[in-house]
Design a protein around this nucleic acid. Structure first.
Lengths: 137, 137
DNA sequence: TCTGACTTTGCAACCCGGTTGCATCAACTT
DNA sequence: AAGTTGATGCAACCGGGTTGCAAAGTCAGA
């Protein structure tokens, strides 16, 4: 277990400190994306700035990706092992309006968009809102 | 001019106070979306809370719509006269990574997405990032 | 093994966008 | 003219995000 976590960190060139192992462990346990404030609650003895910088490091090294779902704080979720955070790795995110959980729909690529003349494409963010399977009656 | 503004307010059942006329006037002058902090700078003698509540009122009455482009503060842009803020009124937004301006691409509808089983659709937000025509070399 | 350079952590403080409570003011009704 | 309602201005607060700085930890080379 710890081996796998260290391996993941190693793959992304991140030094495996105790803090980072713990944070990564929590991240792997999540089925939905998690925000910094939520992380603070889980580690109620840990420092906010450290958690913040840990997430920054993870994001910079493409271990996690940031999700802006428009519902408060930014959330983070693990990248696929093969992810390079390129356009082809982008996928749709889903925000449940009942439980406020955000899902990575990794199997749903984002459709192509034809932009107006002289507008160039770099990146795209797509968030669908609705009710998730867990909250469906 | 003032007539048109009052008419727009009237159409959306918003009482035409001086403040609201001024804010609406500024909004109609923008070719791109504007944030509350930007609005504060334009009206440097006006109160933040008043501007805030003015935008809230406009949004509630569907005179403007909120755009969350992930680049700092929420931005707002005028709705089309016919807009009911229903899914069919949704369009793609474009954030220029050079000038940080956000455009409503009202002519580009958001493509349909097939969600996983038992996930229901309510709403969708799509923001394309890139370089806009003005900033293209 | 010791030393020095570099990284990570913890604490504190700060910034800024957003939001609310409350008193005052304006407009409109009767 | 008095009373009701809504709008405004001011102040304060909240929470997420961010940074400066000093202490602790890590590691390579002597």
């Amino acid at each position: 277990m710890k081996r796998e976590l260290d391996h993941k960190l190693h793959l992304r060139n991140i030094k495996p400190t105790a803090m980072r192992q713990l944070v990564l462990h929590v991240l792997t346990e999540q089925s939905t994306a998690i925000s910094l404030p939520e992380l603070e609650q889980i580690f109620d003895r840990a420092d906010k700035a450290t958690l913040y910088r840990t997430l920054k490091t993870f994001e910079k090294n493409k271990l996690i990706h940031r999700i802006n779902d428009g519902a408060g704080p930014v959330k983070y979720a693990l990248c696929q092992d093969t992810c390079k955070c390129q356009p082809e790795d982008l996928h749709v995110h889903f925000l449940c309006t009942k439980c406020n959980q955000t899902y990575c729909l990794t199997e749903i690529p984002i459709p192509d968009i034809t932009l107006p003349a002289k507008f160039s494409f770099e990146n795209v963010n797509m968030v669908v809102k609705g009710v998730c399977a867990n909250c469906a009656i």
